[in-house]
Design a protein around this nucleic acid. Structure first.
Length: 198
DNA sequence: TAGGTGATCTTG
DNA sequence: AAGATCACCTAT
């Protein structure tokens, strides 16, 4: 079992660097005693100060307030009335950045993930795509603003992914952000089958 | 490629 | 108070 990432990990470095460093790390949830874990294979970075695609872009609201707090907290919200998306707040207080977890490679507690997703057998879609990943891990709006240095949701350290295996490309579903949609702030492990879109 | 679904934010 | 919008997914 790897060491739990501490606040320092989340608060230091640019959000696009932290998003990249999170690849290969192990995301763990322990919801209602159901322990689940998987290796992070795909992330996206969002920056509240200069990125129009970020919900917190130049505005603090009730929803985005958590991103203005310290790093290492969860930001979970509902999109399209259906899907909960799990993000990790990064950077220090007043710097509203976050990393969206878009896919994981299931690893522990697969039976719980299958049940939550209504699937019989493991397949690459089990936790690919941010909506599917959050659902498989049992995350919903109850898990917003959770401290990731606690024992409900956390990330365990693992060796950093070699840069030759990291693909950097544009983010999904942010066309409305104009020029910022061109930022290559989506990162994934080129070797993994568990990635939402190539 | 369309449609489901509801919280959030903006406008009036 | 109402309307538009939305960091998605599944099935036709």
């Amino acid at each position: 079992m790897g060491k739990k990432l501490n606040r320092e990990f989340y608060e230091n470095g640019k959000v696009e660097q932290v998003a990249q460093q999170l690849l290969g790390k192990i995301l763990v949830t322990n919801i209602n005693g159901e322990l689940c874990a998987g290796r992070i294979t795909e992330t996206e970075a969002y920056n509240g100060r200069m990125d129009r695609a970020c919900h917190a872009y130049q505005k603090k609201t009730q929803r985005t307030e958590i991103m203005y707090g310290p790093g290492g907290f969860s930001y979970v919200y509902l999109v399209y009335g259906i899907h909960h998306l799990f993000n990790i707040v990064t950077n220090k207080r007043d710097f509203a950045d976050a990393v969206l977890i878009r896919a994981i490679e299931p690893h522990t507690g697969i039976e719980h993930m299958l049940k939550r997703r209504g699937l019989k057998a493991i397949n690459p879609k089990l936790c690919c795509g941010p909506g599917n990943a959050a659902k498989a891990l049992g995350l919903n709006n109850l898990h917003n603003a959770v401290d990731l240095t606690g024992d409900l949701i956390w990330v365990e350290d693992a060796p950093i992914l070699k840069s030759q295996h990291v693909v950097e490309t544009t983010r999904i579903g942010v066309d409305y952000a104009g020029e910022d949609a061109k930022l290559r702030w989506r990162f994934y492990d080129s070797r993994s089958k568990f990635v939402s879109k190539r």
